[in-house]
Amino acid sequence: MDLSFYAVAIPAVIILGMSKGGFVGLGNLAVPLMAMAVSPVQAAAVLLPILVVQDAIGVFSFRRTFDRFNLAVLLPGAFVGVGLGYLLAARVSDDGIGFSVGLISILFGLRRLVVERMKSGTEVRKPNIVLGWLCGLGSGFTSMIGHAGGPPYQIFVIPQKLPRDMLVGTTLVFFASVNLVKVVPYFALGQFTRQNLTISATLIPVAVLSTWLGVKLVRKIPTERFYTLIYVLMIAVGLRLVWQSAPALFS
């Protein structure tokens, strides 16, 4: 990989690390950003070992604070969603995957910028098991094709108003489980090549440092403005991916 690849890979990994360090949701930008230089499937494959390392640290830190009910409802659907994501990645062209990743980025960014800001109130919603399974399915699917499983997961979990540590712990255990399951289909896709694993290894120090940076900065900077900038960037990157892949996809 040349310098142009690392010019997008390093910022992507920094954003991913800061997401694990406390800026929840930013990690959804990592794959779309890297997909500007390589195929979305390869970008996700490079990031997956990094995610597994970060997940291990996070789960160990919050191993006593997670909600078993939410995991029991969400994970079965998530595993099915991973399987569906694998079928899409195995059968659809790189342009098709790029279009999907771009579209997910646009929808996620718009949802965070517009829909969530229109919500108000502190009412705690009772969990619906069918909705939870569907949200798990959507989370597993979008996580498989772009490490972007946050929105469906949040639709089910956030309205429950879990205590902070319980929410963080449940989120970490959920995505750590999903990421471990994703290792199998990425092997099946032939994406764990020596080149991809070498790239992952070179980027892990950046991921560790950026996770530490996220922990330090999350309490010191105006997070609302920071998030707004990131979500605008996410929409812009998504639009570029859609624009880039649509002509070949629909020709």
Rank of each mutant, 00 (worst) to 15 (best):
P205G: 14
A176G: 12
F226R: 11
L241V: 15
G138H: 10
L209G: 08
M234G: 08
P159N: 05
N196A: 12
L213W: 11
G146P: 02
L189G: 02
I155N: 01
P205F: 12
I129K: 09
F174V: 05
P151F: 06
S120G: 15
A148G: 13
V183H: 00
I221K: 08
M234D: 06
T171W: 04
Q244S: 14
R125N: 02
L180T: 01
V124L: 00
L213P: 09
A236Y: 05
I204H: 09
R225N: 13
G136F: 03
Q191F: 04
F141Y: 15
Q244A: 13
V184D: 02
P163E: 07
W212P: 01
F187N: 12
M144I: 03
S177F: 04
F175I: 06
L241T: 08
V168P: 02
I145K: 05
H147T: 04
A246Y: 08
E224R: 10
V208Q: 01
Y186Q: 05
G121W: 11
G138S: 02
I230R: 04
V178C: 01
N179C: 02
I155Y: 04
V206D: 04
C135F: 03
S120V: 14
I129V: 14
V184A: 12
Q154C: 00
L162C: 01
A246K: 08
G190I: 12
P159M: 02
